[in-house]
Design a protein around this nucleic acid. Sequence first.
RNA 1: GCCAAAGUAGCUCAGUGGUAGAGCAGCUCACUCGUAAUGAGCAGGUCGCGGGUUCAAUUCCCAUCUUUGGCUCCA
Length: 578
Amino acid sequence: MSDNEKLSMIRHSMAHVMAQAVLELFPGTKIAIGPSIENGFYYDFDLPRPLTDADLETITEKMKEIIASGVPFERKEVSRAEAKALFSDQPYKLELIDAIPEGETVSIYTQGSFTDLCRGPHVESTKKLHADAFKLLSIAGAYWRGNEKNPMLTRIYGTAWTNPKELRLYLDYLADIEKRDHRKLGKELDLFSLHEEAGPGLVYWHPRGARIRQAIEDFWRSEHYKNGYELVYTPHVGRSWLWETSGHLGFYKESMYPPMEMDKSDYYVKPMNCPFHIMIYKNTKHSYREFPFRWAELGTVYRYEKAGALHGLMRVRGFTQDDAHLFVTPDQMDDEIIEVLRFSMFMLHSFGFEDIHAYISTRPEHSVGDPEKWEAATAALKKAVEKEGLKYDIDEGGGAFYGPKIDLKVKDAIGREWQLSTVQFDFNLPERFDLTFVDKDGTEKRPYMIHRALLGSLERFFGVLIEHYAGAFPPWLSPDQIAIIPVGENAYDYSKALEKRLKAEGFRVVTDLSSDRMNAKIRNAQKMKTPYMLIIGEKEMADDLVSVRYRGGKQVNGMKTADFIAEVHKTIDSKEQL
RNA sequence: GCCAAAGUAGCUCAGUGGUAGAGCAGCUCACUCGUAAUGAGCAGGUCGCGGGUUCAAUUCCCAUCUUUGGCUCCA
């Protein structure tokens, strides 16, 4: 048996123990399901009253008693009728029994006073569980069988491991996640804010956050020009005609901000940029000779996200997509996709993401467009990921109704996966807007249209970056790259002159002229995770030197200022982390 | 949208049926200091917003907004 199977058995058994504890503490509770999941387990209950965090303690104590009692887990196969009789007062279990396909065995597991309908397997006895290697983590709501039409049950999440050391490691990992939380760091580093009174899900980029965004955007724009893109700008609102034609008013209306009426027309704030880029395309008749078109825009869009779905920078109502639309002829498709993917990988690598996984989604049941085109497009996507040597999974039928796609997910510094890039074919909009070009033979043909975003949205990407770097950005992205710290007042003028000199090099520099002690200034710069701190006093002033304190704590005293400048240039230009 | 919890000073948080408190940040003054917090003082809050109960509500109740953890959703 693999370690994973063993762990999942422990977790599943732990879920049963928890259910027993809950039933003993809260008689009358209806139990639903309780599987093992990644890192732990949960069980869904229909409880006589809501639970509090204090209840988790009580349940934990009860679970420890059950574990200590060392009762065996006993499997028994029963008939459907027996099972129904056993669970006659458990409506969710009855529903589950009815869902078991005819002819499949129905098994139950019993430990102590608790019997559950369960396929198993379980550990032999609660002796095999470790009373100090589990922890109940949270109480949450969850729909019965995941359907929002069904009643909402109370879910208790827990984590369980083979020994206390593993549990501690996992809890440390959770603490690390908390430390990296972009909402917390966003406040501490003064990067951005959200204002409930001014509208939820709308992001305010503070100067320090804006510097990072500026660095990202500058890089993004110059790379797009280098890679054969043109940049465009389009409006933020459009008349209903645009959204009727695109079809968004038909299938996406509930996610759009409501219309504004003006001159007897309805105007909508854009939830996406594509129809606008299409208007540019339609402005003139196109020849195959002009192809391909690659139009990119940092386009700000607004979407109505359900209140409960909002989450820091990760899920917002207004955001800027690093969007581009490619219009290509059928014979350019393969090469273009390869290029997009290569470009995408380059961008992600530039931001320190090395571990990248691709997901290709193919044609769903309900789709628009010629199946042959779907085939060709999907083949182009596969060819591209293979050419790039990317690991990939295929999500059969997981594409949007309008075309197949590749999503790229990156692993961050602590192994969490984030979806960033997406490349999607669109067989819907060219049809709806009747896009054409004149081919070699003089006939009008339909171009292929490809949507792509490399970073996803700047807001979300920013959130991911904050968590990836835990706020300690590589120098090329740091809001302040260098903090000058004069030792005493006599070094103030010199420090100001040095600041000017470093700024002339293009560096982002601050000088701390506050009345704080030098130690406090170092502490403050360190807390802001500034990569370079320059300590300036008599010695440095005398010989045009700097004493460098690096963010990591390393010190190099008496460095020639010119050498320091060269070193910082090198680190910034190479986009290295410090 | 659903279940649950929370909302007190700029931040982190304490507290109470009798109109609020700490630390940090801010401001003022003194100190000018050699690698993660100098000291003293001052100022700062309709206790999320609306309603109800009460002699009295920040505290109890209802409603609402927002946030958090999940669920659903993410074309």
